[in-house]
Design a protein around this nucleic acid. Sequence first.
DNA 1: GATGAATGAGGGTTCATTCAT
DNA 2: GATGAATGAACCCTCATTCAT
Lengths: 231, 231, 231, 231
Amino acid sequence: MKATAVKSKQRRGAPAAKPRSKAALEPVRDAERTRQAILAAAEVEFADKGLAGARVDAIAEQSGANKQMLYYYFGSKENLYVAVLERAYGAMRQTERELDLLALDPLDAIRKLVEFKFDYLHEHPSLIRLLAVENVHNARYLKRSRHLRDMHNSLVTVLQAVLAAGQARGQVKPGIDPLQLYISLAGLSYFFFANAATLSTAFGRDLVSDSELKRRRAHVVEMVLDHIRVR
Amino acid sequence: MKATAVKSKQRRGAPAAKPRSKAALEPVRDAERTRQAILAAAEVEFADKGLAGARVDAIAEQSGANKQMLYYYFGSKENLYVAVLERAYGAMRQTERELDLLALDPLDAIRKLVEFKFDYLHEHPSLIRLLAVENVHNARYLKRSRHLRDMHNSLVTVLQAVLAAGQARGQVKPGIDPLQLYISLAGLSYFFFANAATLSTAFGRDLVSDSELKRRRAHVVEMVLDHIRVR
Amino acid sequence: MKATAVKSKQRRGAPAAKPRSKAALEPVRDAERTRQAILAAAEVEFADKGLAGARVDAIAEQSGANKQMLYYYFGSKENLYVAVLERAYGAMRQTERELDLLALDPLDAIRKLVEFKFDYLHEHPSLIRLLAVENVHNARYLKRSRHLRDMHNSLVTVLQAVLAAGQARGQVKPGIDPLQLYISLAGLSYFFFANAATLSTAFGRDLVSDSELKRRRAHVVEMVLDHIRVR
Amino acid sequence: MKATAVKSKQRRGAPAAKPRSKAALEPVRDAERTRQAILAAAEVEFADKGLAGARVDAIAEQSGANKQMLYYYFGSKENLYVAVLERAYGAMRQTERELDLLALDPLDAIRKLVEFKFDYLHEHPSLIRLLAVENVHNARYLKRSRHLRDMHNSLVTVLQAVLAAGQARGQVKPGIDPLQLYISLAGLSYFFFANAATLSTAFGRDLVSDSELKRRRAHVVEMVLDHIRVR
DNA sequence: GATGAATGAGGGTTCATTCAT
DNA sequence: GATGAATGAACCCTCATTCAT
């Protein structure tokens, strides 16, 4: 409260001499920057506390924006949550698109996809949490967002093409359901990261150390390849 | 509140025929029964709404107990949540113990374990949700409960023995990390059930229909066996 | 709750004539006025019921503010209580400072101080009650507030100077401990007002009637002077 | 809760062999002992927390009795509070009666009375607190209890006689109002003990150390005698 | 675009008290 | 006389949201 008050006074004290301030954190009237700051803060908060547990005040404070701005831009806490989901999923999807799996040798493509999933989840821990949050809500909000609906779909389509190519070359077993494979491939990495904390505690083994991560990554790749490769 | 009022009226409505009450929900002064009723209602509520989203009033009403009883027996919403977790995990663990995997042929044992995980999660959907809830909280409460700490451990120990036996018989590849296998084995089923709703929507395919469940179950088993079997 | 509803109706009832509201209780968006209204209501409530007995709802209603405002400005019931204490004590201290005792003849200064204490407590009955409340809590909150710590101190310092001056002039006995004198001087008035109700009942004599007040005031002054005067 | 349960089992386990247990804390079925245990615990709790702040549960637990017993014997929290007041005041009064002041030289009698008040309050700190509690409530409960009503009265009567005797002997000034003297005499000690904690903190001087207590005691006596003695 | 002040509807928790045994 | 289980009324506090500037 106090901090905000001070800030606003500073701003009001020097509105004419604006060139003086280009520091990254200066709260200038920049709609898009404010929006993004709110989204970033919200992602952290929602990932950390869930939808019900997240606090609008906390998001506002973290983002450096006024609480009212949050409503100005997103209308409600729930809408903000959906916006966060869309942004996080949209980013992942965009990255996936750039993989260009069809240009690779089929087995290499599969390997690359598995490794990508693993690495992406590792690098985006809040995504894990957001998905857990959605699971708690039975994916109510994911379903509502048509923007996200087709997300998985495209990847499965690619997977199907890759498998077909692999089968044509005699590298891949016939009869593999690309959807099952996709689910397994995602699950092997997701479950690991989602439960890394618990599992590390339970087994007294730091599963997110560099060496353990490498081991897990190799295991996941091998498991998938063991399943699809012809013997 | 309403429920209680109604019930007490029922009780008063039939005081003459009181020869050792048998109605399951009769609000007699039975500590253990009340405790269990609260736990059952809480499991549903927490699985459905998460820790922050769950409402103490809702739990009380659903359990047929007075809201205060919840505090009388569990002290706080958080403690109640932990009690729910312990009960749900304890039950699973107990069932696991009864599998007697060491008595089976190694490959059969693995198959049985995979199928058990799959079936148990299918039959206990709230467990999936509770785990998602815990993931949102970074397993804060699971870690706190030492009663749960060693839960996974025992299973991994068994798994290790089974793999060793399989290797001795030349059925199982050497060099398999039982922990990795355990995580994968759990993840393949868990991720499926956790995301069944989303995935069904995304792919326009009812993944929890009987036939699809059978298909998934077979896939999971095959994937695990493909990985461990010698070729 | 009711009060607020009524007030908002009043406001809506007279929107045309809004040329700079002057009504004391008009709920304008004026932070300081709201703060003071809450403090005033809280002083009454705390003095009347104690810390535990005071009701936040009652304070809110009496102040004309929304209950939430209380937390907005003071954070908690306890903090509000401390703020009330600080305000009440601060006001007394401020008045004491303006007595300018050192400018008077020593015996007159003592007399003036004694009379001041008596009159101030008479005019500020809630101060008596607040001190009683603090006594119940072993002065826990007074101690916490360093703002109040030095309150007594300054007066004792002045008293010491006055006594010294009196001794120099041969009016005052030597060897008087200013601290003991201060405690006695305060106690003689405080105890009377604190127990006026009980004592009046017990002795069947209305001790707070004008004539009785005069008598007590004279008695207190005389008692103090009898003690310090040389014979 | 647990502790109580255990105890009751012990009792039920050995009801026939009663001679085995004469330990002071054994919760036998002794009405008067239970009553007194409750009163003692209640005195501490009420003195410490006030009427509203005191917890019935805490009293029950501290007394070692069941909560219901408290209601069985006293009917309500408020009644229990009054009972505590009556007991504490009754005890003081009884002791006062035994002073036999009229047998002494008048000035010695006054001195003895002042010292008695000082010492008694020092030895019964909860009395100070209970009086503060009553002050917060405007002595509502004291007034209600006729048993306490005449308590002060008798002492003032004695005081009057002592003063008259002193005047007859030419030791005491004429025109002293025994009631004013009584109030002052009580106030000088009461205020000191009631505020000892605060004052010690404020002045950085431990006012309840042995030497400071002696000093205060002497000061109070002197102040009273200075006032009544002829010069 | 942005802000501090304000609000109403609960949320979890506590408490004095009573019931049934 | 004594106990554990149960109750309902509040109590303090929080939260998402809106108003007025």
